[in-house]
Simulated assay, not measured.
Amino acid sequence: MSEPFVNGDVHHRACGICPSRFHAVGDFDVFERPTPECPFNRTDGHRYLKDGTPVCVHPEKVGLPAGRYKSENAPLTVGLDLPPDPSEVVPYLREVLWNAAPVFLDDLITQAQKQMVERFPEMDPLTVMRRALG
């Protein structure tokens, strides 16, 4: 059995019954909101697709964009687009990185550093990242 995405972190924003607390990333789908396609199961308190795929309906709480990761094998990817104003980069990165699923952090940091070098050559990526994560 694979390790759950959220494990024992009582401070995590995921709901107590979220599939992320029982399944690894990629072993459940994430929807933008509840829909008739993933009805609430009164027996166990979870939501499922007809094929039994568990569904989370709070992407902002688990840090994963909506996607059919289990049911359609959607790739786990995330994009980053730094704001055009250099003064907004640190707050933007703070928000993105602190709310992202851990599985995306390496990719987001790589994207951020690359975009900073391209768009804001006067910025030191290491200093910016320290401010964003501090």
Rank of each mutant, 00 (worst) to 15 (best):
P4N: 01
P36C: 01
P75F: 11
G45A: 03
P4A: 06
G45K: 02
Y48I: 00
N7P: 02
V89W: 01
L133V: 11
A66T: 03
K61Y: 08
S71C: 04
C56E: 07
V90H: 01
M116G: 06
P84T: 12
D9G: 07
V90P: 04
R68C: 10
M123V: 08
L64A: 02
R94L: 04
E60R: 09
V25T: 10
S20Y: 03
E3Y: 13
F40Q: 04
S87K: 14
P59G: 08
E95V: 06
T110G: 13
M129Q: 05
L97K: 03
F40D: 03
P65K: 03
F104A: 09
V25M: 08
G52W: 05
C15T: 03
G67R: 04
S87Q: 13
V117S: 10
C38M: 05
G52L: 05
V62G: 00
A74M: 10
A132S: 10
K61Q: 11
S87D: 15
R68E: 14
D27Y: 09
R21W: 10
K70E: 08
K70Q: 11
G134F: 06
L49S: 02
L105K: 12
F31K: 03
E3G: 08
A14Q: 03
Y92N: 07
D106T: 14
R68M: 12
P91C: 07
R131K: 15
L97H: 04
D51M: 07
